[in-house]
């Protein structure tokens, strides 16, 4: 019931906003079209400004993944995982989650197909994917768009969130579904 309500909310949110905001602007006597174009122009330049930062980040992440460095780290952390009773099948996903949105989506699909979507691993993987956002992508895009080069402590805070999200997903799903 709640799920359905929530889903409907997500589906309707954008159309309703797209309809209401210009309508309200029109009633307020704003030349809606001209203002929209002015804002859209800003959007164009911002998107272009982000591009070099994204190139740097995605090349680094791609090389990191393909070279096997990711696997190396997985192998290193694996023994610790076993001591904490965390499933090592999910570790690559947990690391990928902070690096690449499409990468982690792909990995989750793989896990769902391999272990089954209603298995405990499948459920946990879905929860991991749903409970945090792609830290490095958000960080790069948001800060690059305004030209910030020193993100200070926000990288650590974001990564801490990912780790907490991973551990919490595993324990909560075990509590709920085992």
């Amino acid at each position: 019931m709640f799920a359905e309500l929530g889903e409907q909310l997500s589906v309707w949110a954008i159309p309703v906003l797209l309809c209401l905001i210009p309508l309200y602007g029109f009633i307020k006597g704003i030349s809606v079209y001209e203002v929209f174009v002015k804002g859209a122009e800003e959007g164009f330049y911002t998107a272009i400004r982000i591009m070099p930062f994204l190139v740097a980040m995605m090349v680094a992440i791609n090389v990191f993944r393909t070279s096997g460095a990711l696997q190396l780290i997985v192998n290193l952390i694996d023994p610790i995982m076993n001591k904490l009773f965390l499933p090592s099948e999910l570790l690559p996903l947990a690391i990928m989650r902070s690096l690449s949105g499409s990468g982690s989506l792909g990995m989750t699909t793989e896990i769902l197909n391999h272990y089954g979507p209603d298995s405990i691993l499948g459920i946990t993987a879905s929860t991991i994917l749903g409970s945090t956002d792609t830290t490095f992508y958000v960080l790069t895009v948001y800060f690059a768009s305004i030209g910030i080069r020193n993100p200070r402590y926000s990288v650590y805070v974001g990564l801490l969130g990912d780790i907490v999200g991973f551990i919490c997903s595993v324990y909560i799903c075990n509590l709920f579904f085992v």
């Binding site: 704003i30 804002g39 859209a40 911002t46 998107a47």
Partner: peptide
Amino acid sequence: MCLWLGIMKI
């Protein structure tokens, strides 16, 4: 970006 920043401007 263009779409949403346009709407936001309105």
